[in-house]
Amino acid sequence: MRIGEVAERAGVSVRSLRYYEEQGLLTSSRSPSGQRHFAEDAVERVQLLQRLYVAGLSSRTIAELLPCVDSPSDANSDAAFERMIQERDRLSVHIDELLHARDTLDRVIAANRDHRREMARAGAGAVPA
């Protein structure tokens, strides 16, 4: 499948695919005219890469984990497993921080609503939320 088709089916830019290839995260073969051709599973691979990027993993970390995804073995599983645990722990801390920030924002919003209601009752012209 050509690069444009992979990009369209995976919902990414052609530039992203070229970057993934430069980083060793995605492979293609070349036609005699130099066009990139990707295997059918390239779309799934790109979607996996996108999920890992969204989770906050760097290209370097993803490259460390991919051997375990591609061909799990005793040689690469232990290191990749430890790295996955580290990344999961990092994400858990980040999620906890985000939840705390959301809870703080909820309290500020509630206080603002209360204030707006009080102002409306006092006839100050504020509209209740």
Rank of each mutant, 00 (worst) to 15 (best):
G125Q: 10
Q23K: 08
L52K: 05
A63E: 02
V93E: 12
R51Y: 07
R117H: 15
R9T: 00
R88T: 13
Y19I: 13
R121H: 13
V46T: 00
E87M: 09
G4K: 04
H94Y: 09
L17M: 07
S13F: 09
A42R: 06
V93M: 07
G4Q: 06
T27P: 02
L48V: 08
Q23G: 05
E44A: 08
Q35S: 00
R45Q: 04
A39V: 06
E22K: 07
L99A: 13
E118L: 15
T27E: 11
G4Y: 02
R88S: 10
P72G: 05
V93N: 12
A126L: 15
L98G: 10
R15A: 10
V12Q: 05
R9S: 00
R107C: 15
N112V: 15
E40W: 03
S31C: 07
H115W: 15
S73E: 05
Y20K: 01
Y20F: 09
A110S: 14
H100R: 14
E118K: 15
A110P: 11
S28W: 05
V69D: 03
T61Y: 00
H37M: 03
A7F: 08
S73V: 06
E8T: 12
G123I: 10
G123E: 10
Q23R: 07
D96E: 13
S28E: 03
L17T: 08
S31M: 08
A63H: 11
A75Q: 07
E82P: 00
R45E: 05
D96T: 14
I62V: 10
G4I: 06
V6F: 04
E8I: 02
L57E: 01
V108K: 15
S58W: 05
A124W: 14
